[in-house]
Amino acid sequence: MHDLAPLTALGADAPLHETIGAVTLTEQPDFALASLSARRGCEKEAAIALRKIIGHAAPAPGRSTNSQGLVAFWVGPAQWFVEAPYNSHEHIADELKAAGGDAVSVTEQTGGWARFDLSGETATEVLARLCPLDAPQMQSGAATRTSIEHTGCFVICREALRAFSIWVPRSSAGSVSHAIETAMRSIA
């Protein structure tokens, strides 16, 4: 076991957890992330490999699946991100590669992104100040990339109208979370 201490994306001692008005924003550092792409002509094999790990069929464009904390969401043609609890799946990339072999290209993305959860009665009003998504129409499981604070982020609807996860490029976590908090204060 190595002896290097991790740091959260915002770099504070504790992950951000803030309630403003009816909405709460929480930094979620304890998730691992990896991308999986099907190799040429291997869409079927890739889907099987994905199912083996996440216990679900590969999500369609604009969708995610969730099975016991293992979440997969579509990010591009024949390409998915898989999100898993860090403690049990730090090496989710290796798990996916082992399952898919030469049928898949897998890339570790854990360090590239920071997850923020936005929940509460007025969560969609907050999102309306941040990005062009029609958040009130997003069904539970909807997942899409959008631009928040000029930064490409993934927004996953965990529960329609009230709970969303936002995956933010890690280096921009400070700017984007600041923008979210500003919007929360604005509508509070």
Binding site: S37, R39, R40, T107, Q109, G111, G112, R170
Partner: peptide, 15 residues
């Protein structure tokens, strides 16, 4: 379009 190649950015995944 038919080369077997997949791309993804990992700029900030690694320090």
């Amino acid at each position: 379009p038919d080369l077997d190649v997949q791309l993804i950015s990992t700029t900030e995944a690694w320090a």
